[in-house]
Amino acid sequence: MASSLTLTDAPGRLVAALNRPEARNAIDRRMVDELHAVCADLERSPRTLILTGSDGVFASGADIAELRERRRDDALAGINSTLFARIAGLPMPVIAALDGYALGGGAELAFAADFRLGTPRLRIGNPETGLGILPAAGATWRLKELVGEPLALEILLAGRILSAEEALDARLITEIHAPEDLLPAAHALADRIARQDPLAVRITKSVFHAPREAHPMIDQLAQSILFESDAKFDRMQRFLDRKKGS
């Protein structure tokens, strides 16, 4: 059976392209399992993940034929939510490069990323209530953190689908690029991340996602680790040397 992902390694990053063209990249159990394997790789060998689609589609949603057969125990198992939480918790940043449809589970996968870039033909939202279910893989809480409660409720309860410009205005995505420029733009962002100290990036991501009540203690503890790192001394010395030479 063919893989539902196309994986490409590059320096400091891994590109995972969803590749089920016959189903508009709908997320099925096989894709979930393969994305778990990607996570296991990135947990062992931390690097930036670029998630993208294929054939002008990111992910049209969950596989409805498969979803139709799921029952209570499947919901309680959190098949998609467990995966998306694992993706959100990866050590290094996750970039979602979104083209065409990013709907339902596809939108929730995008919400789990740290960065979202889009194309002019992006359409993103959560139409689950129209199918008699709710978006249970992160949208009910991640979306209001990303765009605010009023717009999140319109998306979740009234089925509003955002265009690329609307998503940009809401800061759900941060950049719009022509389809042929989307993946290069994601790589350019990954390049900027790669220029930072990897340990500082990992720790900053963890601190950023810590609960409010953990601050400022967690910031101070994290900084105490970085203050002892070789990279801190080396990078600061290079900065001072450049300043002295200018």
Rank of each mutant, 00 (worst) to 15 (best):
G89Y: 02
M1I: 04
A2M: 12
D230K: 10
P11C: 00
R192T: 00
R47I: 05
E166G: 05
V201A: 00
R121N: 15
E43M: 11
R235P: 02
E166H: 09
Q196S: 09
E69T: 06
E128D: 15
G159Q: 04
I50Y: 08
N25I: 06
R123E: 10
G100K: 09
R20V: 13
A62W: 13
A23R: 14
A23T: 15
T129V: 13
E166S: 08
A178D: 14
L117W: 11
R70I: 01
A214Y: 13
P198G: 02
Q220K: 01
R116E: 08
A136G: 11
D73K: 10
R30W: 04
L35A: 02
I50C: 03
D197T: 08
R86G: 02
D28Y: 03
A200D: 10
I176Q: 02
L183K: 04
D181M: 13
P11R: 01
L168D: 04
R171F: 12
S224G: 03
A17Y: 09
I176V: 15
N25Q: 05
G12L: 02
R13S: 03
R142T: 11
A77D: 12
N126E: 14
A10S: 07
P93R: 05
L134D: 08
L98N: 04
L49H: 06
R47P: 09
E154Q: 14
L151P: 10
A167M: 10
D63F: 08
F233M: 01
G245E: 15
P120C: 04
L98S: 03
L5I: 03
D74A: 10
V15M: 03
A37H: 07
E166Q: 15
R142Q: 11
T82E: 10
S54Y: 11
L143P: 10
P127R: 06
L98W: 06
I87S: 01
T119C: 07
A112Q: 06
K205E: 02
N80L: 15
G125P: 11
I79M: 03
I173A: 05
L35C: 05
A62L: 15
L83W: 12
T52Y: 05
T174M: 10
G245D: 15
D73G: 00
L226Q: 02
A65L: 14
P21L: 05
R238A: 12
A110W: 08
R86N: 02
E175Q: 15
I95M: 03
L49M: 05
L90E: 02
I95E: 04
F58V: 05
G105V: 10
S4Q: 12
R171H: 15
I173Y: 09
A113F: 10
P127E: 00
G125T: 02
A164T: 05
H36K: 09
F239D: 00
L143G: 06
R121K: 12
P127W: 03
T8H: 11
A37I: 02
L42A: 03
T8W: 01
A210C: 09
R238E: 12
L240T: 01
A107Y: 06
T52C: 14
N19D: 14
R123V: 06
P211A: 08
A190E: 04
A77C: 05
R212M: 10
A110S: 09
N126M: 12
K232G: 00
A23L: 14
I161P: 07
E228L: 13
F208H: 13
E180N: 12
M236F: 14
R86K: 14
